[in-house]
Simulated assay, not measured.
Amino acid sequence: MKAIILAAGQGTRLRPLTDKCPKAMVKLHNKSLLDYQIEQFHRAGIQDIAVITGYKREAVTTEHAIKLYTNERFAETNMVYTLFCAQDELQEDVIVSYGDIFYSEPALQKLMSSESDISVVVDTQWKSYYAERFGNPYDDAESLVLNEAGQIRSIGQSQPLLENIQAQYIGLMRFKQRGLEQIKGIFHESMQSDAPIGWGRAAEKAYMTDLLQEAIHRGFDIQAVPIDGGWFEIDSLHDYEVALKCMDKSELWKKAK
């Protein structure tokens, strides 16, 4: 099992913290988000880690051994294109993580224990955390609909009906070999034909949720891995302050510092 961390974005909503570095290098208690993730992977026994950079790539540093890839077109592309900048790594069994998130060890272990071809971590108790981040928890919520078997039927649609918000996607997923072949087929077909995927975006501009939703449209199974909180995202200055408070008051995060 290997891990890929997507760390190419500019993080404009985190300025001035991202004036000189990407979001993954923003520090919480003197440790970067990137180092938090790498150390989490190491504790889980994952040593093969690739990081895909873009914005301020020269600022991406760590004492840990990693493979570095670069999305040279980071300013004009999005998450899916970034992932395929490390296509050589998309083999066998891969965990993919956004570079601006941090999650607890139980969340990672639960993902690693999934047997599905495509597995996606979702927070079923997201409302309290989103209320801290946005005031109204529904302001930034996207669709996430599960069937009775726990498979995802809708993910990433903006401004969904309230009944279509059963959980929230956190930016952490796993693809086994069959799942990797499925998403490779979607990406390359879309790049060659210019056909939109997911919620109507071209592959170059697509979010990861577009790729996942396109897999659902094509009848591929995506298994939800539910967690009860225990993660945070650093997408804005307010997110940063919320994360610092969480780490200071929770024994879970104190252990990670």
Rank of each mutant, 00 (worst) to 15 (best):
2 K>F: 04
2 K>W: 10
5 I>Q: 05
6 L>W: 04
6 L>D: 12
8 A>H: 09
8 A>T: 10
11 G>D: 01
12 T>C: 01
16 P>C: 10
16 P>K: 04
17 L>A: 12
19 D>N: 14
23 K>F: 00
24 A>P: 06
25 M>V: 08
26 V>R: 08
28 L>E: 03
30 N>C: 08
32 S>E: 05
32 S>H: 05
35 D>P: 01
35 D>K: 00
37 Q>D: 11
39 E>T: 03
39 E>A: 08
45 G>Y: 05
50 A>K: 01
53 T>V: 07
58 E>Q: 14
61 T>M: 12
61 T>Y: 06
62 T>Q: 02
64 H>E: 09
66 I>D: 05
66 I>Q: 04
74 F>T: 00
77 T>N: 06
78 N>S: 15
79 M>I: 06
79 M>E: 14
83 L>Q: 01
83 L>I: 05
83 L>D: 01
86 A>E: 06
87 Q>S: 14
88 D>E: 15
91 Q>P: 01
93 D>F: 06
93 D>T: 09
96 V>Y: 03
98 Y>G: 08
101 I>W: 00
103 Y>K: 03
103 Y>C: 02
104 S>N: 04
105 E>S: 11
107 A>Q: 08
108 L>M: 11
109 Q>D: 11
112 M>S: 09
114 S>Y: 07
114 S>D: 13
116 S>L: 03
118 I>E: 01
118 I>R: 06
121 V>F: 02
122 V>W: 07
130 Y>L: 10
132 E>C: 11
132 E>A: 14
133 R>V: 13
134 F>N: 11
135 G>N: 13
139 D>E: 14
139 D>K: 07
141 A>V: 06
141 A>Q: 06
142 E>C: 10
143 S>A: 13
147 N>M: 05
148 E>A: 15
149 A>I: 00
151 Q>P: 00
152 I>C: 12
154 S>C: 12
159 Q>V: 08
160 P>A: 03
162 L>R: 13
163 E>P: 00
164 N>C: 09
165 I>S: 02
166 Q>N: 02
169 Y>C: 05
171 G>K: 07
172 L>H: 05
175 F>Y: 15
175 F>C: 12
176 K>T: 10
185 G>R: 12
186 I>K: 04
189 E>W: 11
192 Q>S: 14
192 Q>P: 00
193 S>Y: 07
195 A>R: 10
195 A>F: 03
196 P>W: 02
197 I>F: 08
198 G>E: 02
200 G>Q: 08
201 R>D: 07
202 A>Q: 11
203 A>K: 02
203 A>I: 03
207 Y>S: 13
208 M>R: 02
211 L>M: 15
214 E>R: 00
218 R>Y: 07
218 R>E: 07
220 F>D: 10
223 Q>D: 04
224 A>S: 14
229 G>Y: 10
235 D>I: 02
238 H>L: 14
240 Y>N: 04
242 V>L: 12
242 V>A: 10
243 A>E: 10
244 L>E: 13
249 K>I: 12
250 S>Y: 05
251 E>N: 04
253 W>V: 06
255 K>L: 13
257 K>D: 04
